[in-house]
Design a protein around this nucleic acid. Structure first.
Lengths: 142, 142
DNA sequence: GGTCTTCATGCAAGTCGGTTGCATGAATTA
DNA sequence: TAATTCATGCAACCGACTTGCATGAAGACC
């Protein structure tokens, strides 16, 4: 959230070219309130009867494509979603913030951005993005 | 491969407590010959009629658990396997080498080990392992 | 407000990777 | 060679992910 430039979630959705619907507002609010990345199954559990599985799938997909949220995989390869920083723009996620995966409960947390080391990649390879994943146990599971 | 201390694949399998079978020898050889990490589907395509899906699943699982190979997820969260360096031991994969994911063809390549930056993790969290994933396009897709 | 266009949703169905139980067969051991 | 232990194949299943199509709602325009 930007303290100096508050924007309602309705405006936030509209600014990304997304229509404002109950489902999208609820999911967006849920993602904002959660301190960690949520899977589609998490959303279904938190907001039962809100919408069809396919709808939630498409809502999360739309959030990612529009830049409202970013996708990160948990330890089992399942996609989880977290709200982006305000600097995010659709399709471009250049801020390299690390993620922490708890190997016990499976939760994924976004960490502060880190300066990644210079890695030499093979000749002809083109680097587009870097991701740093830390694994261990979260405070609740330690 | 260790140039100074060659070990046959039969010995390699036996040294990890695994029985020597045609399927395991073929999969091990395939992983060694491939310069990149392979998914189970890759193995099935490369060695059709070799063995049942479940057998390949369990062979790759046994390779990982015994330390013969390590598992890394591709851009879609699908597991891929690559043969470990000789220093690997069962269940312990402390060598932090980076991986490069090609976003075009999906291939995953093992890179040289890198010194990871010191990342501050939240209070109460316990760090066990770190992974660095680079994404972009490989030489064939660039 | 009413109408129209466009997009969001729900339902059905299907794909794919991953996984388990159990019976059978092969590799190792004695 | 016989006994034991482990590897394999088959069937079946689960969960995450995905698409097509018909319906309904959101936004735009008058």
């Amino acid at each position: 959230m930007n303290y100096f430039c508050p924007m309602s979630n309705d405006q936030l959705l509209r600014s990304r070219g997304l229509r404002v619907t109950n489902t999208r507002k609820a999911v967006l609010q849920l993602l904002q309130g959660s301190g960690k990345a949520l899977s589609q199954a998490d959303v279904e559990r938190s907001l039962p009867e809100l919408a069809d599985r396919v709808t939630l799938f498409r809502v999360l997909q739309a959030f990612e494509e529009s830049g409202l949220a970013h996708r990160v995989q948990d330890a089992h390869g399942v996609s989880r979603f977290a709200v982006c920083a305000d600097t995010c723009s659709g399709g471009h996620h250049h801020d390299v913030h690390a993620h922490f995966r708890c190997l016990v409960c499976g939760d994924v947390y976004c960490l502060d951005p880190v300066a990644l080391p210079k890695v030499s990649i093979p000749k002809g390879f083109k680097l587009k993005e870097s991701q740093l994943h830390l694994e261990g146990s979260c405070s609740a599971c330690s």
